[in-house]
């Protein structure tokens, strides 16, 4: 089933001096259930903007973007928020856990916005999810006292607790060491596989990108299809240029 379909999507913002800045243009992308998509690109190439569009956090200024067959520009703001809450799970590079709340409370947060049984059974569901990501013993621990890997696992549990059909991971291993990053990716993929969710990963890491079965390269705001090797070399070229 097609989850997201972008046709000629572009995003232009206005700079403080009034000039327009085109971040994305002519993006064509289809994401279906079960897809593993990686998007690589240099800093400022528009990766996060594309992720925001796919995750209904932003709307395109040109082209057509459909989510579950609905034109996102025609979905009212509240309905779009609810759709995002039930169908999209975000995993951020900096984890973005709510400070002062325990791991259990963090994972319960998305369930506060779901109606009916999920809300009333939120503690049970969140507990099960944390056990699923191996943090059954750290339920009442606050993020400040968790390691980077543990924090990202809490973030994954939170992103997946409502069983979204689309998981958007923005540099999910960017703040982790190589080994922990690989573990975290394995976990995301495993949980996504259980629910049949699509996983779209934005990364700078060639090994992370290589785990996907569809590869894209963002260059100057344009999305190009690439194979695993192409994506990998693009990342390496990016790293080399940054080092120079």
């Amino acid at each position: 089933m097609t989850l997201v379909e972008a046709r000629g999507v572009g995003r232009t913002v206005e700079l403080p001096d009034g000039r327009p800045l085109t971040i994305l243009s002519g993006v064509d992308l289809t994401v279906s259930e079960g897809d593993r998509v990686s998007i690589v690109g240099r800093s400022g190439s528009g990766k996060s903007t594309l992720l925001n569009l796919l995750g209904l956090l932003d709307a395109p200024t040109e082209g057509e973007l459909a989510f579950l067959g609905h034109d996102v520009r025609r979905i009212r703001s509240g309905a779009r928020d609810r759709l995002r809450g039930s169908e999209v799970g975000f995993v951020f590079q900096q984890f973005n856990l709510l400070p002062g709340r325990t791991a259990l409370e963090n994972v319960q947060t998305p369930l506060l916005y779901s109606g009916g049984r999920e809300f009333w059974r939120r503690e049970r569901i969140a507990r099960d999810m944390l056990e699923r990501v191996g943090l059954g013993e750290r339920l009442t621990t606050k993020p400040e006292r968790l390691s980077g890997g543990e924090q990202q696992r809490v973030a994954i549990a939170r992103a997946l607790v409502r069983k979204p059909r689309l998981i958007l991971a923005d540099e999910p291993t960017g703040a982790l060491d190589l080994e922990t990053g690989a573990e975290v990716m394995s976990l995301i993929e495993a949980v996504a596989a259980e629910t049949g969710a699509a996983l779209v990963t934005i990364t700078h890491d060639a090994t992370i990108a290589a785990r996907s079965n569809r590869h894209f390269l963002l260059r100057g705001g344009r999305l190009e299809t690439a194979d695993a090797a192409g994506a990998s070399s693009a990342v390496e070229a990016d790293v080399a240029e940054a080092a120079a």
Binding site: L57, S77, G78, D81, R82, R84, G85, P99, T109, Y113
Partner: peptide
């Protein structure tokens, strides 16, 4: 602000 943004990303509507 950051916390509100996070909540919005997980489905909190503007009204909520």
């Amino acid at each position: 602000i950051r916390e509100i943004g996070i909540r919005r990303s997980f489905g909190a509507t503007a009204g909520r």
